[in-house]
Write a protein that binds this DNA or RNA. Structure first.
Lengths: 249, 249
DNA sequence: CGGCACGTGTGATACAACTCACATTCGCTT
DNA sequence: AAGCGAATGTGAGTTGTATCACACGTGCCG
């Protein structure tokens, strides 16, 4: 199952790629140190695609033929069990890269990628990308750093899920998301639904909702539709550090 | 906290490194394609160290100054929460590499490393290792593959912990460990205590024991002291694939 | 050949989180 | 402005695991 729900494929992106969209990628840690010439060459390999909400980009187990980056919207990386439950690994926002694992090691995809909102993405074929990396060793080092960062993110997730109970896991997830989304320094708004958080954290939406309501009355968070605002990160951080102790929660 | 319980540090390993011990590392996917000359050079950078059971090699949060490899024995990668519980990420056996994340990205260590048995390890300093990688781009590609493999391992762990209940998680852990340890093709003996498995899986030893006993009466596994033998992997695999359905367990 | 630490085995009880079954609110589409 | 789907809010009842509190086996070390 690949590329269902694609609105339209633009031409392969040879010349005249919308340059404002590329500016964001140009600033990505992976590419920021690359010479302009090399970056332009990479862009000529890229395809620009638009997906509508709910569309599947690829599924777990598919061969990994392409590296992707989000231009606008968000892509959900998740897996689902046969009995219908699903777990979200990560939500990928504008300027972020995804799908790199399968591309780099040539194995199958580790998760499903679906458009969580309508979105524009940027796709590079493995056959063009790999030789490019080989001829740019400094890029390989950048990818090593990228993989390390993902590994830290995922290890954190294991740590929280194994060691913490509901309040701890939820607090930890909120903090991680707030750090990641950090748009403006003051703005702690996280654009996720309660259903989504519940799937990241591995607990039911109902349980998450009840805990969030408790915190809302304490003014630690404010609940909006499709978003959560972290008003006071301190007590949440304290909860995470205290381990799975209950202490009045 | 670094290097407590070190039995003795041999000299820095310049010349005359015990070559039988290196043979194992030479075969590691990371190094097997390296020219002998380069490999020898790397060995001259290495230090040989012996640790006794329980010794701490490094702790989560320490600066990551060295890359390590196990020669003999096993090293436990784990984290612990303030309330005393702990979670095991992985057990590193002979011929395996660990501590690469912090070395490669220059950040702090993501977990504690302790000697799970008396063991011999092989240590390379970051200051010597990084330049070596930079001057051997093919090695960088190998490390990318290594990181991808670790990421797959860790993602699997998240998937199981979030989606599965006790039987599913336990079955999944047993299968993963059996694949990893796979010494002889027929031998499905996993050298771990029930306590250790419980910490890998995030459930209590008691619960794990009760489930294992059920499977033992069904001849799916045999329990030994400090080890578990997988007799029939099929029904375990089926359990994992069925998701968290209970079906007579 | 103790003895002592570590690993294993097992039941009774408690509770955190799930399930199910709704009611409510929001925001978009027509 | 009406309607509808998606997101949120909430309670009563159920259950999977944790906790606690033991007893037993085994193997190593002095």
């Amino acid at each position: 199952m690949v590329m269902t729900g694609v609105l339209h494929d633009k031409n392969s992106g040879r010349r005249s790629f919308p340059s404002d969209k590329l500016a964001m990628l140009r600033k990505h840690p992976i590419f920021c140190d690359l010479e302009s010439e090399a970056f332009d060459q990479l862009c000529r390999y890229a395809k620009h695609t638009t997906l509508k909400r709910g569309a599947t980009l690829f599924s777990k187990g598919d061969p990994g033929n392409s590296l992707c980056a989000v231009i606008s919207g968000t892509v959900k990386m998740s897996i689902s069990s046969p009995d219908g439950r699903s777990a979200i690994f990560n939500l990928i926002g504008p300027g972020e890269i995804f799908g790199e694992i399968a591309v780099l090691d040539g194995q199958s995809r580790t998760a499903d990628a679906t458009a969580n909102t309508n979105c524009e993405i940027f796709v590079i074929d493995r056959r063009e990308f790999l030789p490019f990396v080989r001829s740019h060793p400094e890029l390989a080092m950048k990818f090593i750093e990228l993989l390390c960062a993902k590994l830290r993110w995922t290890s954190d997730q294991v740590e929280q899920v194994i060691l913490q109970n509901l309040p701890g896991r939820l607090a930890s997830a909120l903090i991680r998301l707030a750090d990641k989304h950090k748009l403006a320094p003051g703005d702690r708004t996280i654009a996720v639904t309660q259903q989504e958080i519940s799937e990241m954290v591995g607990m039911t939406r109902e349980s998450i909702n009840k805990q969030l309501r408790v915190w809302a009355t304490r003014k630690w968070v404010r609940l909006e539709h499709g978003a959560i605002v972290v008003l006071d990160a301190e007590p949440l951080q304290a909860l995470v550090e205290a381990g799975s102790g209950s202490e009045g929660d």
